[in-house]
Amino acid sequence: MSACILVTGGTAGLGYHCAIALARQYPNHRITIASRSDTQDAAGSINRLLGQTNVQYMRLDLSSLSQTRLFVKKWVENNNLPITHLLFNAGLQFPHGVSYTEDGYEKTFAINHLGHALLFSLLTPHLAQTARIVVTASGTHDPAQKTGMPDAKYTTAEELAHPSGQALHNPGRQRYTTSKLTNVLWAYALERRLADLRSDPNQGRNWTVAAFDPGLVPGTGLARDAGAVMRFAWTRVLPKVLPVLRALVSPNIHSAEESGRSLAWLAGDGKVIGSSGLYYEGRKDIKSSEESYERAKQEDLWEWTVRNVAEGPEEIALFSLKTLV
C-alpha cells in the first residue's frame, strides 16, 4: 500500500458507493471506511466485489470526543502511511427534541460538525504533502433552494452546541439544515488557512478542500431516527420512484450509487482535485447560500471549535494550523 484514504460514513449509502469507486480507482491505497458499526461487513463486500484486499473498517463514534481521539490513536498505531484523501461524509439528523452527547453538546451539531473538525485536526500531522479534503454538506443549507426543509439559522457556534431559550424549541430538521450550513462555513474557513499554507514555500503542503451537496438521496440511513412511516417511505418507497421525484420535485435527487460516484469524482478526479474552496452540487460547482459566505460566522465557528476541542496550548496552535508537526 502506498497511502491511505479515509471515508466516514462509508459502510452504507452514498459513502459505501463512494468507497467502492475509490477502492477501484486506487487499488494500491488502503481505503478505511469508518462508522459506528459495520453490521453488513461493508469492507468485506467491497473487497469481494473488486477482488481486492485494500478496504478495511474502523469503528468511529463522532458523537464522542474521547472516542474520536481513540480512533485517531488506533489509526496512528495501525497506519504508517500518509493520508491523501479525507472524506467527511457521515451525518445524522434527530427530528424530535433536543438530544445531547456525553460531552454535553447538541447531537446534530456534534456529529455533523464537531466530531469531523476534531478528526481533521488530529490527523493533520499525518496528511500527505498533497491531500484532498471533501466535506459532505447539503443543499438544504440554502433557503434559496426551497428544498422544503426549515431554513438554516446560524446564530453562534455556542448557541448551536448548547441551545437555550427559543432555540430549544427549534425543529430537529432545522438543526440538521443548520449543521449542514456549518459544514460549508467550516470548509470556507479551512480554505483560507490552507491557502496560507499553499503560499508558504517552507510548508510544502498542497492541501485542498471542497464542500459537496449530494442532493436528496432516499434510502440512506439519514432517517434512521424518524418515525416508522417516514422510515418506510424513505427506505422502501422513494428509492423506487426516483424518475418521478426528479420530474415533479427536483432534478437534484439521486440514488446512493449516483451520489457516491460523484463524491468519489470530487475527491479523486484530476480535473478538480487542484481546485479549492468551492461548493459542488453533484459534479457542478455552484454558489452556496448567501449566509455561508459571511466571514464573521465562518470565524466564529472555527475559533469556537478550536477552543472547545483542543486540549492545551500545543493543540490549540496545531488545530489553528499555526504549527504542524
Rank of each mutant, 00 (worst) to 15 (best):
A3D: 15
V7H: 00
G9V: 03
L14N: 04
G15Q: 07
H17M: 04
I20L: 13
I20C: 07
A23I: 03
Y26P: 01
N28Y: 02
H29C: 13
R30C: 07
T32N: 01
I33R: 07
D38T: 09
D41F: 01
G44L: 05
L60V: 12
L65M: 14
S66P: 02
S66V: 10
Q67H: 10
T68Q: 05
L70A: 13
N79R: 11
N79V: 15
N79P: 02
H85F: 15
G91W: 10
F94Y: 13
H96I: 00
G97C: 12
E102K: 14
K107M: 15
A110C: 11
N112A: 11
H116Q: 15
F120S: 06
S121L: 00
L122E: 03
L123Q: 10
H126E: 03
H126K: 11
A128L: 09
A128S: 15
Q129H: 14
H141S: 07
A144I: 06
M149S: 09
Y154V: 03
T155R: 05
T155M: 06
E159P: 00
H162E: 06
H162R: 15
S164A: 13
S164D: 12
Q166T: 11
A167N: 06
H169V: 01
Q174P: 03
T177W: 07
T177F: 08
T178Y: 05
K180Y: 07
T182N: 02
N183M: 04
V184E: 10
A189K: 00
E191L: 05
A195P: 04
R198P: 03
P201K: 12
T208G: 10
V209G: 08
A210K: 09
V217N: 05
G219V: 04
G219F: 01
L222W: 05
G227I: 02
V229C: 13
F232I: 11
K240V: 00
V249D: 01
E257D: 14
S259E: 10
A267H: 08
I286P: 00
K287M: 12
S289W: 03
S289P: 10
E290A: 15
Y293C: 02
D300Y: 05
L301P: 02
W304I: 12
T305W: 01
R307G: 13
R307H: 14
A317F: 03
L318S: 14
K322H: 13
K322Y: 06
